[in-house]
């Protein structure tokens, strides 16, 4: 249920201020090629997870209990909030408010940092317990998927940071802000993937 609600929220959030007339996708088409490619990779991995789990239900259930649901849930809230900040940032630049845009994105950036920190603590706990991708099939998927996603968050933060710097310099305005929308699309994708990842790996039994 959480997945569904969150997805709907995300869609609603995206739709409110972003769509201009005659434009279907915010940001740029080429970036959407990459976003679709990324979704495809994650999609395949999610399906692979589901099939492998179906064959090893007990192992997966037992291993799943060792994950910290609390930190996963906190991270979900953190990312959803950050996505909201990004939406506000885009809305701000559409009104030509560079400063506000940069501030909202800064908020999202900092929340990205919170996500990363919590995730590092989680990874550290697993590595300290001598758990690796070679431990069993569940941890293989858990570590692969979350680490791959983790790197996407880092990437998203790099993108946000460069947009913040440019926004502060006044490089965007109400008419020209494709860069902001493109970065925002990437960040929403990262958020969206986590919203699927979290219940899939941490919760569903």
């Amino acid at each position: 249920m959480l997945t569904q609600n969150a997805t709907i929220n995300l869609v609603e959030l995206q739709q409110v201020p972003i769509l201009k007339e005659g434009e279907n996708l915010p940001g740029d088409f080429a970036l959407w090629i990459f976003i679709f490619a990324e979704m495809l990779v994650f999609g395949v991995l999610f399906v692979a997870y589901a099939f492998t789990r179906a064959n090893n239900v007990e192992l997966f259930n037992a291993s799943q209990l060792t994950l910290s649901r609390t930190s996963g849930a906190i991270n979900t809230l953190v990312l959803i909030t950050s996505s909201y900040f990004v939406v506000r940032g885009v809305a701000a630049i559409k009104l030509g408010l560079s400063k506000q845009c940069a501030d909202w994105l800064m908020g999202a950036f900092l929340l990205g940092g919170v996500f990363i920190s919590i995730k590092i603590v989680e990874f550290h706990a697993k590595f300290a317990a001598d758990i690796s991708m070679s431990t069993n099939a569940f941890y293989m998927f858990y570590l692969s998927l979350t680490f791959f996603h983790f790197m996407h968050v880092l990437m998203g933060m790099v993108i946000l940071a460069s947009i913040i710097v440019k926004a502060r310099r006044g490089a965007y305005n109400a008419q020209h802000h494709t860069g902001v929308e493109t970065g925002a699309s990437f960040w929403h994708m990262v958020d969206f993937l986590w919203i699927i990842l979290f219940p899939l790996i941490y919760i569903i039994r």
Binding site: L45, M140, S144
Partner: peptide, 18 residues
């Protein structure tokens, strides 16, 4: 090499035709 390469390798190389 470790088993996980079967997943990583399959998924990404399957996209190499793109």
């Amino acid at each position: 090499t470790p088993v996980y390469w079967q997943w990583w390798g399959s998924v990404f190389s399957a996209l190499e035709p793109i």
